[in-house]
């Protein structure tokens, strides 16, 4: 697939959906569909799809420990083992996986290979992807947590605290959230690297650009309605609370931009189980990460093994003894 196709296809889809939701909410009275029906539908798709993906992964046997390690395996007592890089017990695995999930430790080791003038081949440490990735994921997580203020009544102290910490510098009114600024910077980096770096542009597909554009729309509409084109937050919270208490009631006149935001969020969570975004669950089920490297001390039997029908030499001799004797082949038993 060419670059133009890869980037234009998701762009056109997103643009079409944006115009669709803007048009429908502005010119018809289908707010119920976008405010109540689609959120429930998206959530149902997300839950079912997520469970399905995890359970289908859980059905794949992992017969042999294929841990990727970069440290000394536990061996004889006098050889110092690196339990974090080559985990031996479940606790070691939990520690390593926690660092992987929370800090993207393996991505931190990312290297880049470059052919410079000379010609000189250079391998060097490349941390930008790690930095942008980590910033993006943590910002996203904090933004999600912050949104709980619309779903909880009264708002728990912890949520208010996170909110307060996030607009610590009180830039403007309403204050600019630090995570908003960070996520825009991070996702711009993640997008530009796909477009500008030829090697990455070559391997980028519509499935890579689509979630990026979707996130741009979600972040953009969210920030736009906080800072520029306001919506009625009280009504937004009323809707959110009514949805999660399963007594949906749609307040009038929230503002069209809210429906754009909500629709793209619904699209994201409905798309989630069928896309590469499933690495949320997948990271915990990666056999190279979640297994203890104990092949040498513990026997792992392949669960695929079926009882093999064998024909032993004794049975073979019993079957052909007379013929063997006739051909003067020595036999074990007379």
């Amino acid at each position: 697939m060419t670059f133009i196709m890869s980037i234009m296809l998701p762009f056109i889809i997103i643009l079409f959906l944006l115009l669709l939701v803007l048009g429908v909410v502005s010119y018809t009275h289908l707010e119920n569909v976008f405010g109540i029906f689609i959120p429930y539908l998206a959530l149902a798709i997300f839950l079912m799809g997520f469970l399905y993906r995890i359970l289908s992964w859980a059905k794949s046997p992992v017969p042999f420990r294929i841990t990727t390690v970069c440290g000394q395996e536990k061996s004889l007592d006098w050889i110092k083992a690196n339990r974090l890089e080559s985990p031996f017990t479940t606790l070691d695995v939990i520690k390593r996986l926690a660092l992987e999930v929370l800090l993207f430790r393996s991505l931190f080791r990312n290297t880049n290979t470059e052919l410079n003038e000379g010609p000189k081949l250079i391998h060097w440490s490349a941390k930008w992807l790690w930095l942008a990735g980590l910033t993006f994921h943590w910002s996203f997580f904090i933004i999600l947590t912050r949104h709980l203020r619309f779903f909880t009544e009264p708002v728990p102290f912890a949520i208010q605290f996170i909110d307060k910490l996030d607009n610590l510098f009180e830039i403007g009114v309403p204050a600019l959230y630090l995570t908003d600024a960070l996520i825009v910077a991070a996702i711009t980096h993640l997008f530009l690297r796909r477009v500008l770096v030829p090697k990455i542009r070559y391997v980028s597909l519509p499935a890579d650009y689509f979630p990026l554009f979707l996130l741009f729309c979600i972040i953009g509409s969210g920030m736009f309605m906080r800072h520029i084109y306001k919506v009625d937050l009280i009504k937004v919270k009323e809707l959110a609370l009514s949805l999660i208490s399963f007594r949906p009631a749609l307040p009038e006149g929230i503002g069209v931009l809210f429906y754009v935001h909500l629709f793209f969020v619904c699209l994201l969570i409905a798309y989630f189980p069928f896309s590469k975004l499933m690495h949320l669950g997948g990271v915990f089920l990666s056999p190279t990460r979640n297994l203890a490297n104990n092949n040498r001390s513990k026997r792992h039997i392949n669960p695929w093994n079926y009882p093999v029908k064998v024909h032993t030499y004794e049975e073979y001799e019993d079957e052909f003894r007379e013929k063997m004797k006739a051909a003067e082949i020595p036999v074990d038993k007379e």
Binding site: L47, L148, F151, T152, E153, P154, P156, I234, E238, L241, S242, I244, S245, R247
Partner: peptide, 20 residues
């Protein structure tokens, strides 16, 4: 599931989902 359904059981516990 417990984490992502946090608001559900939190609001059921406080019983204030209908307050305006």
């Amino acid at each position: 599931l417990c984490l992502i359904t946090f608001p559900l059981w939190y609001d059921a516990f406080t019983g204030k989902a209908a307050t305006k």
